[in-house]
Write a protein that binds this DNA or RNA. Structure first.
Lengths: 215, 215
DNA sequence: ACAGGAAGTATTGTATACATCCTGAAGGCA
DNA sequence: TGCCTTCAGGATGTATACAATACTTCCTGT
């Protein structure tokens, strides 16, 4: 049988709502009323409430003035804060990954990244999935479940900015990823940390430039 | 009126259960059955389920083999992992706090700490509360809500080890706290970071020694 | 016309009843 | 004797009904 935890309607509703928030089906400030969601997902309010509680904990939604929770709008400051935290944690993770064994799992990811550098054009989903896979693998190689979880949580919140909005970052981003991987494979913690730090600084700079371009 | 969020039975149950777990009323491995808890707290299963979901998210309880969640037993490795993460985050927070304005809030805390150094014997609750207050204030001075929240969450999980088990740490611990405060008040980030790092290393060492003494 | 209040409406909080699934034990068969 | 099957009990997942609360709108008085 499937994992009972992920096969309950409550968990399914959670994943569904999270996806709808991240992909823009529910834009920021959208009020999420329990009855509306229950009707829309075809379940009762009980699993909906469970899902909302989880999203509330994660910070993807918030109760602004008391009652009905709304989709949280990430301010630029929020975004910078999250990326700052990600840098702190992922730089640490990269350093620890370089000291770990089992780094071979990074090799197939490196191959795919090299293909992007060589000119292959992946779909957004493909690219995002590989990005996730790499950062998750590095966090996991750190050997700390806590670090892995925090990195995963933080990356979730910035994911809505990664949706193919910055195609010009594909090749340089992939090059930076390869640099991080190579430093880890070579067992050089300082270089791995530096490469990760550079990468995240570039991500921040390019997204801030994108946001500035909008105004 | 009181904050509507904290006056619901669900939130009350959450705080109540959390306290019971942290103070040992529910020791590790205790199964937390919804019916039992509902009867014990005098509410229905609905708010209990809400509270359990929150505790589950926080990691204070876990579903080990499927069904009934049990109070999580913190292994030594878990503890080291948490303290490692705390060091990473709180060192960062101390550095940023030293660069911030508004550090005057630390002065009354410093006075109390000095009283402990001078020989005053606080109750466990008093000491724990001041400790919380200091670390929370430093995290808050970092200017990052995210950092503050993470530090708070992590400290919660190690709190069960702080319950007056290490009376010999009172004076040196308070001295270390004063050193951190003084570095922040003096606006010296590097020294603040170093003092915080030293402090947390000492905390880890003394608790590991305590745990080793048990075996 | 504007402010204050009161009633109605809608939404969340809580309790309870029902459905589903897991667990454990008893009994039968090889 | 040991293992598998089956059934009973219980615990969680889900739906629904009810209670309480916050918001909205309209009315009234100044």
């Amino acid at each position: 049988m499937a994992d009972p935890l992920t096969s309950t309607r409550g968990q399914a509703a959670y994943r569904c709502l999270r996806e709808m928030i991240l992909d823009g089906t529910f834009p920021p400030e959208t009020p999420l009323q329990e009855n509306m969601l229950a009707a829309r997902l075809g379940v009762s309010r009980t699993p909906i409430r469970e899902a909302l509680a989880q999203l509330l904990n994660e910070g993807l939604i918030a109760r602004v003035s008391g009652l009905t929770p709304v989709v949280k709008r990430l301010s630029v400051d929020d975004f910078v804060e999250i990326l700052h935290m990600r840098r702190l944690l992922e730089v640490e993770a990269a350093g620890r990954a370089a000291r770990s064994s089992g780094t071979a799992v990074l090799r197939p990811i490196r191959e795919r990244m090299m293909a992007f550098v060589a000119g292959e054009q992946p779909t957004d989903e493909e690219h995002a999935a590989l990005d996730d896979q790499l950062h998750a693998a590095i966090a996991s190689l750190s050997g700390s479940r806590l670090l892995t979880r925090y990195v995963t949580d933080l990356r979730l919140k910035t994911k809505m900015f990664d949706r193919g909005r910055l195609p010009e970052r594909l090749v340089p981003g992939s090059q930076e990823h390869v640099a991080i991987i190579d430093a880890i494979l070579a067992g050089q913690p300082e270089q791995a940390q530096e490469a990760m730090c550079t990468h995240l600084n570039n991500v921040r700079a390019s997204i801030l430039a994108y946001l500035g371009r909008l105004t």
